[in-house]
Design a protein around this nucleic acid. Structure first.
Lengths: 327, 327
DNA sequence: CTGAAAGCGCTTACAG
DNA sequence: CTGAAAGCGCTTACAG
């Protein structure tokens, strides 16, 4: 377990050149005699050699590092995505660098540059925001998969859910239940995902006979979905019409709305149903009042890595929409 | 923004040697004439040169990467620690690699080896478990700071809270409130932190007149603190004596206990007070019934990085116990 | 079947 | 004040 075991160490011990050891380490067994291979393998074993990824990266122009650039790790959904991606990358022999952009384009660009300097093998962009560096990245053709939000500066491999369908499902649920006054709560400056969930919800309600004016819409400002829900809740419950069913585009928004509902003395469910889209496992423990369309964040990791591997192999990977649970 | 801007590119453009450029890039301004410095700086600017960290790491035997090796990212507390550490490292010019060990010693060792191969500049070990590789690391004197759990294989820089004091604080709170039947819930196979919280609680209760038998103790098995609380709750609420105050050593344990309490038709608070140690911000939104001693996870990052920097400078860094809020 | 050599981008004694 | 050279650990044509 010494620090100074390099190809040279192994080569000396086996009595061959570093070239030969290098080839064998890289699996080119058929270019050396069986005897040599055996001797080298023994030497590797004996000194406990492991290839130095830094030397290798410099030579190959490519490291074993994969950059995950995420908008906000404090969001439990992103934490789960990060965790599952980390596990899948490790299985595949890669190491994950984690970058939190706090949804700020300049930070995202800073990281994008830093990661290119690190010669990362690929990029996982979770809820990426539009930025100059991102456009460059897209243009450069570097291996990248977008998660949750589609590439805001063009197209690209995507892992997520069918957001419009999720919204529509909530609409059907409310309609089938006989609710009359549906509402939807979303971030003012939302992602494509948010918007799709909302429009899927609205379109389906229209199909099922609602007029536009009959559907209550409320948004909230800022980063924090908790705050967004709380703020929008004030307008919803303080308004002239109180809804009997609310779709929140995320769990955290629902938490905020619920707290406001409690302040207004409303019973949830009962006076008003709450449905959200996320379905983090914590809900069953602390928010049993919440019905949620469950996004399978825990399997995002394997899908993301599968996507990267397809790209590395030169195959094309368009998008992978994962099925949600709702019961 | 080309890929091929190296020291050589800059040197050629400025009409000097790479040595000179390298020195200037590294801030050794006084070893070159003012004219040369100006010319080189111009060239750097003109071609948009950024030092390649991989070449640099190989030469220096040390990268700009810092490894965070955490036991379980799905735990919100660890996610917040990871997030704040990432931010602090970025400010300091480092990049964070994230490794999730799932509390498994073999995985921890695998990562420890992989990170050494990456020539990481330092290690942040969050809730590390005992393992052969960890002993090696401690022995090697590599820069490492332990977080949440102290080094289980010896000593080492530590960032955390005064766990015994936190437990004692809960005891005082219950005693001052006039509670008569206190209980404490903890993981069966807990960390040093868990144990200290429990013993701090018990010792203070004893000081304040409780007999050992009067204090209800319940543990639960497994990884998931939610499950631990739920399981222990069954024994607590199904037992002969029902407590009127419970300390849970983590928020998630409290969530589990609360759910069980609800199933038993108990009102929380009212029939029974619940206090936990963690104080994640989510509590105010989804668990207003929970009183929690708040650990400042969001500032762990800056303390951890400050600790690493002290170690890098050769100064000694023993431990940093951060103050908790409880009101 | 095998090895010497060049080179990935960088740093750092050493010589001038 | 400045540069040529060696070397960090590796890979890969190329020559034999």
């Amino acid at each position: 377990m010494r620090e100074d075991v390099s190809l040279a160490t192994v080569a000396a011990r086996a009595g061959v050149s570093v070239s030969t050891v290098s080839r064998i380490v890289n699996g080119e067994m058929r270019r050396a005699s069986a005897a040599t291979v055996a001797r080298v393998l023994d030497a590797i074993e004996a000194v406990g050699y492991r290839p130095n990824p830094v030397g290798r990266a410099l030579q190959r122009g490519q490291s074993q590092l994969v950059a995950m650039i995420a908008a906000n790790l404090d969001n439990p959904a992103m934490a789960t995505i990060a965790s599952s991606t980390e596990a899948a990358l490790r299985e595949a022999g890669y190491v994950m660098i984690l970058c939190d952009t706090h949804d700020r384009p300049e930070l995202q660009d800073e990281y994008l540059h830093a990661m290119r300097a690190q010669m990362v093998r690929g990029y996982v962009l979770v809820a990426a925001v539009p930025s100059a560096g991102l456009s460059e990245l897209s243009a450069s053709g570097a291996p990248a998969v977008f998660v949750t939000r589609r590439n805001p500066t063009g197209s690209g491999p995507f892992v997520g859910i069918d957001d419009r369908a999720a919204g529509a499902r909530a609409a059907d649920y409310f309609a089938d239940l006989g609710r009359r006054a549906p509402a939807v709560v979303f971030p003012r400056l939302g992602s494509s995902a948010s918007r799709d969930r909302v429009s899927g919800f609205l379109d389906r309600l229209r199909e099922r006979g609602w007029s536009d004016e009959a559907i209550i819409r409320a948004d909230g400002e800022g980063q924090s979905h908790l705050q967004i829900g709380y703020e929008a809740g004030a307008r919803i419950f303080g308004g002239s019409r109180t809804p009997d069913a609310i779709l929140c585009v995320s769990d955290q928004i629902a938490y905020g709305v619920n707290r406001r509902a409690l302040e207004h003395g409303l019973k949830i469910p009962g006076d008003c149903d709450l449905v959200s889209i996320d379905g983090t496992p914590l809900n069953q423990w602390v928010a049993p009042w919440l019905k949620s369309i469950e996004i399978p964040y825990a399997v995002y990791g394997v899908e993301i890595v599968a996507g990267l591997q397809m790209i590395w192999r030169g195959e094309s990977f368009g998008e992978r929409l994962l099925p949600c649970k709702f019961d």
